[in-house]
């Protein structure tokens, strides 16, 4: 598997520096999976604690961000698995309305995203927000690039159904 985003730039960043640089991305990625603001905030803290503890096993062939995203993914899916996380408990008031110039439209998109399975939501985030290629997403999610392509297509089909009220 080609390592495109996982190239290590040999940065020497302190933990505080990493937190400042990547905490927001970690939060949003966690949110795309956990679908809960407070859970995602907790995930950010937990991810950096886990990173600090596992720093010795940090892979030199990848970037800090990739490593953090992998830790985030493992944490979030374990969180869902261990606590039988129920996405129906999501409270819509957790969202800050300032993001939306078109409130109705964004709410419907939010609702659609909340109804998407975590693995689809995660792929949508990695593709649309992070702008990663299929190969880069494959390295983080441990899927094949072909599988990423198909799952992203299915995620869009599902999202479109929800948005159109076909679900």
């Amino acid at each position: 598997m080609n390592k495109i985003i996982l190239q290590n730039k040999k940065e020497n960043i302190s933990l505080s520096g990493l937190y400042e640089k990547y905490s927001e991305d970690i939060f949003k990625y966690s949110f795309s999976i956990l679908k809960d603001m407070e859970e995602a905030k907790d995930a950010v803290q937990e991810v950096f604690v886990r990173y600090a503890k596992s720093e010795d096993s940090f892979r030199n062939d990848c970037s800090y961000k990739s490593w953090l995203l992998i830790i985030t993914r493992n944490y979030c899916f374990n969180r869902i698995k261990n606590k039988n996380y129920n996405s129906e408990d999501i409270d819509g008031d957790d969202f800050n309305e300032s993001y939306s110039p078109d409130y109705d439209m964004q709410i419907s998109l939010k609702e659609a995203l909340m109804k998407l399975p975590e693995e689809y939501n995660e792929l949508i985030y990695l593709k649309e927000y992070e702008g990663f290629s299929y190969k880069e997403i494959a390295e983080i999610t441990k899927l094949s690039p072909e599988n990423v392509k198909i799952k992203l297509f299915r995620a869009r089909q599902e999202l479109r159904k929800i948005l159109k009220g076909d679900n």
Binding site: F31, S32, N96, S100, M105, K110, E128
Partner: peptide
């Protein structure tokens, strides 16, 4: 829309 959604999430960490 998805990109805009994630970009505009405002959170105070």
């Amino acid at each position: 829309e998805a990109r805009a959604f994630y970009e505009n999430i405002d959170v105070e960490l």
